[in-house]
Computed example of a mutant assay.
Amino acid sequence: MTGQVEEPHPPHTTDDASGPDVSTSAEGDPVPHTPHVASFPFDKPDADAVLRSSDNVQFRVFRGILTSVSPVFSSIFSLPQSSSSHDGDGTPTIDVTETSNTLDSFLRLSYPFPSPPAFTSFDDAKRVLQVIHKFQIAWHSSLLVPALLPHIRENPLRVYASALRFAFDELALLAARQTLLLEDLTEWCEELRDISGEEFQRLLVYRRRAVAAVTTDMTASWCPVWKCPKRWAWLVCPTCTKHRSNCHNPFVCACPTVAEWFAAFWIRLSTVLRATPTAAALKLASVVTASRTMGAAVNCVTCRAAIMEEFPRFLEVLGDELEQRISELTLKQELHEPLEW
């Protein structure tokens, strides 16, 4: 037994004898003939194992750390090592197929470092997800999600499909939540080839439930009295609201009335939330612009003051409510109900 995880791609020797002392991998990347040691902290001379990347970089690691998080590494390090699988000082050496960049990021997630690695692209991040899946890492790193957040925002569909492929359920849910800001889910990405029709259907059902969550019981007269004991001015303004003819106490009545300017805003907001059913939609340009320009259309002194003083608080409370409703949704829902839009 050599202790190798996978045989690296055999290098192709260059024909130019006067050229640099490198070979070319199957992917066309230069591979130096002479291995060199990785940078800190994977250069410790007292390390008891070496992982050698496909581009010939040696990562000096400690078995105890890797075996504590990965049953695959436990099995690898338990294998008898031949003399050819040791480096110059006798440290057992394991050849892996990952490049040094991918291996470095993977190890920084495996070691107890205080900050996450930085992924320059989602392709880099996806390679690390694949390695974590390959070695069956038995923890959920609090560093992984922060490192992926920029890519979740930029590529939610790619992250969703990749997370399902590599069995990262929590990551898939975060990506699914980010897709709620997409008005169109038909944009193609290669990662969709890696998931089943049922898994994509779950994303569509999740979106439909999100639309229902942010529209059910949400009307222009919505007023969370437990969060804001004083009713919003646009619900009680005696000038801008209209009450039934038999209503004699407009300040405590149950008439479903609201100022016309706010009703118009709510219609615009409802349209946005049906297209992008998430609390983050409140920060979209269409909503922000509408809320900022209402003051010019309000002739009522009471309502104009309310827009300046109460409206920011209203959007904050509304955002909290929408966030709470969305947070209760999961991807583990039955799919027998027909989709309705």
Rank of each mutant, 00 (worst) to 15 (best):
K283I: 14
D184R: 03
C228H: 09
D16I: 13
T219V: 12
H336C: 14
K332R: 06
S18A: 14
S78R: 07
Q136L: 02
A167D: 10
P156F: 04
W226K: 14
T239V: 14
L284W: 15
H36N: 11
K126I: 10
Q4R: 13
H12M: 04
M218N: 07
S68P: 02
I307F: 08
S74W: 11
L164S: 08
A213F: 02
V5H: 14
F59C: 00
C228Y: 08
R52I: 03
R304Q: 13
W222M: 08
P80C: 02
R127S: 10
E154Y: 04
V205T: 10
W188L: 14
L51F: 01
V72C: 06
P238H: 01
E191S: 08
R52T: 00
F113K: 11
A176D: 01
H243I: 02
V301H: 13
T302M: 15
S83H: 09
S84Y: 09
Q136P: 04
S115Q: 15
R268P: 13
K283D: 15
P238E: 00
Q324W: 13
S70I: 05
T276K: 10
T257D: 00
E199I: 12
T179Y: 01
V31E: 08
H133W: 10
D124K: 09
I152V: 00
L164G: 06
A263L: 11
P250L: 10
S25N: 05
R292D: 15
V258R: 00
V96G: 02
R52C: 03
Q136W: 09
S85V: 10
Y111E: 12
T91C: 01
T289K: 15
P256F: 11
L148G: 07
L203R: 03
F265G: 03
L66C: 03
S85Y: 08
A210F: 01
S221F: 10
N246G: 14
S327Y: 12
W266V: 04
A280W: 03
T24H: 11
G28M: 01
Q201P: 12
A306Q: 07
L51Q: 07
K283T: 15
A279W: 06
P41Y: 08
S54K: 03
K134H: 03
S70F: 06
E321R: 05
